[in-house]
Amino acid sequence: MKLLYFAWVRQRIGVGQETVSLPAEVATVAGLVDWLRTRGPGYAEAFRDTRAIRYAVNQEYVEPDQPVSADDEVAFFPPVTGG
């Protein structure tokens, strides 16, 4: 599974993208966040308040209950501020 992080989520985690093996117990985006939090202090800080996080699976916005599978590209980022 390909994971992408942008803006301050990327800064807190320390990398912009990584490839991980999806743990068997992770079924949704929310489950993925819970697992990522356990991977280190940067992850825990990035996902401390998930109200400030938006999610995309395969480049489409999704809600935290969205199912995920091993082939997915999942992105985590703050609310957008372009324009």
Binding site: A75, T81, G82, G83
Partner: peptide, 13 residues
């Protein structure tokens, strides 16, 4: 422009 500002994944530092 209104939709772009809330939907397009850009971030300003």
């Amino acid at each position: 422009i209104d939709w772009l500002k809330t939907k397009a994944p850009f971030w300003k530092l």
